[in-house]
Amino acid sequence: MAWVNWKHLFYGLLVIVGFVWSIHITGFDLTKLKALANMVDFLSNWFPLQLEVVPRMLEASLVTLGMAFLGSILGLIFALPLSLLAAKNTAGRFYRGSRIFLSFFRSIPEIVLGLMFLTVVGPGPFAATLAIIVHNSSVLGKLIGELIEAADKGPQEAMKAVGAPSITRALFGIFPQIWPNVLSHYFYRFEVAVRTSLILGLVGGGGIGQQLFIHFKTFQYSTVAVDVLLIMLIVIAVDFLGSRVRQDVM
């Protein structure tokens, strides 16, 4: 056993057990795919597309885009100071507390946050946006905190050596070097926020997600098709924008 030791074998066994167990518990049975014709039948209901709803659904899509953008950008803005409190090298004695604080908020599913804000501000995009802000502040706070911990110490030392005040030190010694990675995380979270705002539509969060849900429940499949197409367009557009900006920033 030149490459493998008992620990490897143990973990390998664990993966196999987990694999078999999951097949059992999820009813994973490829033979059931024989009924693929059902899906073709279902999808055929989607066409022809209900084109007259496009302008109205486009408007709803813009609402979704707005929720995702505002939610993620405000999340980023709150996350930046939080991240300094969540990194070992900058937080000092606040480290443990802010780590616990962030993981607490991160563990609340966005849909639950959405339902909670709904009771305060009523149904609609505002409640959904608040949920996205809270979730992204805590996720980005943690991720950026980890970038800060891994940042090169050199520029931070140089800033110490010139006698810079402590906040200047963090801003200039740390953020320029991690900025491309911060943006990378941000755009990924923006993309995720688009998908989240769709889910939040299910609980009255507004936007194209809510439309999709309504059309589905009322069997308007040719409109559902329009909704799905628009959603795909938004996700692709955000992804494209993200990769362009990242290229530019490198």
């Binding site: 050199g154 520029p155 010139v162 810079a164």
Partner: peptide
């Protein structure tokens, strides 16, 4: 005290992504 002492390093330790002039300005931070 540190701001009265200029220091240079083997690996330069400049602030990445900033220009030459901007890096010189960082010497004034103290």
């Amino acid at each position: 005290i540190r701001r009265n002492m200029g220091m240079i390093f083997q690996q330069h330790q400049l602030i990445p992504r900033l220009s030459v002039l901007q890096n010189v300005y960082t010497g004034l931070f103290g």
